[in-house]
Design a protein around this nucleic acid. Structure first.
Lengths: 223, 223
DNA sequence: TTGCGTTTCAAACAATTGTATGAAACTATT
DNA sequence: AATAGTTTCATACAATTGTTTGAAACGCAA
């Protein structure tokens, strides 16, 4: 059993490579080369490539969800049982953004891997991902308590949009930097979180759907 | 030259399979089986697998960008040269959403393929994707004309968030349906577009500057 | 040291991948 | 009908994939 040296070496190398290049482009031979272990070690310690991926994802998924719930509880405690909508959304998108962006995390595999995982749906992950819905329901419920007057549907859409902005910003951070000629500072993580949360909250709390539907142009063309 | 029967058969089959299962999971043998053509036909007509993917992506990319620009011009013409911000964003996210969602397009590969393409960055696509930045710049410029008082950075963020909501909604439409127990109707495409545009516009036009730390539930209406 | 369970290693495995080949079948012009 | 150019086809190829194997090396209690 020793110190599980090779086991963790494989995990570390695999996560880094997967985060950098995606699942399909990384072979077991790439991993064992980066980890400086024997090829057979992967199957010995994990059984198969899929189980290695699954273990990676489960570990990170649990950690991320725990951190999210921790922040949610913290916000609820601070608000005397009912958390502010901003705080709820901040608990939802903060951990993943903090893990993926920022000067020290920009190229870090810690959570960049999770984004890959949520994108390329390899079989072992797809199974696990289904369970994440239960996790999101907790946030939906908290949002409902924070905004009891809003319709459920609107809340789900708000939740969806918040995650959308967080994930997309992480995935396309490079493109946003290039598009804005570096003027969008993705290293200031807390600023990014603020922007995402603010935009999501505005979409949720703004009354009257007035600002939409372009006046002159045919807004809706169907039906 | 006949009617390019096999050529188009390959294109159709490939796009459908790629849309359904992603690039890495679809082999040339899968494609030729679905297209009912010989294995060698792919390399004969396209040169290589990568060139087939590139041709698919280029074709769809051009069509999508053309439709976006068409709607943008239409909006600008209707506004006498200066388009409304809602109309601009609608031109940006409308075409892709219409192509991917809706009862008849839900499982249609027409543009679902594009989402896969923008996610799994296989080499031939990555090259083409870079050019899309120039395309987005046109929208950024239009947004600047529509909201001359907003800072450039805020506009880029708004553009980023609008695309984020559109793409994420397409990608995770199944999860949103499941999470909301079917109450979020993703078949009503125009409603989805309205929601995306409205949320994006609110984030852009709401007067609630900076406000670093979590803003209170100030329900700010857009002007 | 001896013995035994665990871990590592080099090598080979079978399966799958994209691509290439060269002959056959087809099309259309002469 | 004959020919030249194009397209199809079965087949083979080389490379890469995840996985397996059996022996060697190791750790450690007796």
């Amino acid at each position: 059993m020793a110190t599980d040296q090779t086991r963790t070496a494989i995990l570390v190398a695999a996560e880094r490579l997967y985060a950098e290049r995606g699942f399909s482009d990384v072979t077991l031979r790439d991993i064992v080369a980066a980890a400086n272990v024997n090829l057979a070690a992967v199957n010995y310690h994990f059984g198969s490539k899929d189980e290695l991926i699954a273990e990676l994802f489960v570990t990170r998924s649990i950690a991320l969800n725990r951190e999210r719930l921790r922040e949610l509880r913290e916000a609820e405690d601070a608000g005397g049982g009912r958390a502010d909508i901003s705080a709820i959304l901040r608990a939802l998108v903060g951990p993943i953004l903090r893990g993926c962006l920022g000067p020290e995390n920009q190229r870090s595999p810690v959570a960049q891997f999770m984004i890959r995982a949520s994108i390329e749906s390899v079989p072992p992950i797809r199974r696990i991902k289904t369970k994440e819905i239960d996790h999101l329901r907790k946030f939906a419920a908290a949002m409902q308590r924070a905004l009891p007057d809003s319709s459920e549907v609107d809340l789900f859409w708000g939740l969806n949009f918040a995650l959308a902005m967080a994930h997309h910003t992480i995935r396309e951070s490079e493109r946003l930097t290039k598009l804005s000629d570096g003027r969008c500072d993705l290293d200031d993580v807390e600023d990014v979180i603020d922007r995402v949360v603010r935009a999501a909250v505005l979409g949720l709390t703004a009354r009257a759907p007035a600002a939409k539907s372009a006046p002159k142009v045919a807004a809706r063309e169907a039906r």
